[in-house]
Amino acid sequence: MMATNASSVPVVPGSEHDATAPLSIHDMTVAYHRKPVLWDVDLDVPEGQLACIIGPNGAGKSTLLKACLDLVPRISGEVQFWGESISRQRGRVAYVPQRESVDWDFPVNALDVVAMGTYRRLGWCRPVGRRQRSAAMEALERVDLADLAGRQISQLSGGQQQRVFLARALVQDADLYLMDEPFASVDASTEQAILSALRELRSQGRTVICVHHDLQTVQESFDWVVMLNMRVVAAGSIEDTFTIENLRRTYGGRLTLLDQAAMALGRAHRGEEEG
C-alpha cells in the first residue's frame, strides 16, 4: 500500500540524507515505557555549525541527544555520524551530560573529571599518566580553571562545574560535540567563556550541538537551530528558521492529540485499560 501511494506524494522531497553530515537522523522514534516522546525525527546537521536544539519543557531535547548516542533505546529509525553508526565513530563524538545528572559530592577533583575525557583513548586497564594529566590541564586552562584543578568538585560553583564538563569534552579532541544544557543556571561570565570556547571549536571546523533553553540568546550565539516539540518543527539556519511563526508552532502549546495518542500507545502496550 505504501508502494502504491508513494507515487502520489504531493509535497516534500524524499529524504536524501547527506552521508558526510556529522549527524544525520533518519525517522527516529523514541519511547519511554512504550510511550513515544519523540516522533519521527528526521534531521541532518551540517558540518562546522554551532547548532542549538530549542523547545519547551518535555519536548524531548535531552532525549534526542541520548537516543543518538544509544543511551536510551530507539523504537525505530537510524542515526549516523559521518555516514556510519555511533559504535564506529565514538572517538569523534564528545558528549556533555546535564550538570544535574551526576553526584557532585563524588570524591574526585576537577582535574580527575577532565582526565576522564582521555579514558577512551587510553583503553582498558591503562592508568592515567602524565600525558593525560597534562592534556587535562591544558583543557582546564582553555576554560580558565587551571588554578582550581585540585579543587574537589563540590566546592566549585555551578558555572565552574559546567566549565569542568566542557573541559572534559575539549580534552577528547572530538569533531562533534553534543552538549545537554551547557548554559543552564550559569553566571554571565561562564556563559561567555563557554560560548567563546564553542566558537573556537567552530572556527576549527568542528560541529557543536547544544540543547538550549534561553530563546533570547539564540540569535547572537548560534548559527543553526533545531526547533523541537516531540517532533522537529523546523530545522535550518537561524535566519531562515528562527521565525516568529516557527516559534509559535514550537512553543504554542503542546499538541494535545499527539499527547493523547502517545498515552494511548503506552497504555495499550502496558496492558492497561484495554477493551
Binding site: 501511494n5 506524494v9 516522533w39 519521527d40 525505530s76 516531540m230 517532533r231 499527539l258 495518542a261 494511548a264
Partner: peptide
C-alpha cells in the same frame, strides 16, 4: 499540524490507527 514530512507519516499512522477511538 505536526510538521512531519509527507513521506514519513505513513509509518506513524500505521501505529496510531490502532489506538484511535
Amino acid at each position: 499540524q505536526a510538521d512531519l514530512a509527507a513521506d514519513h507519516v505513513h509509518g506513524q499512522a500505521m501505529r496510531l490507527e490502532h489506538v484511535t477511538d
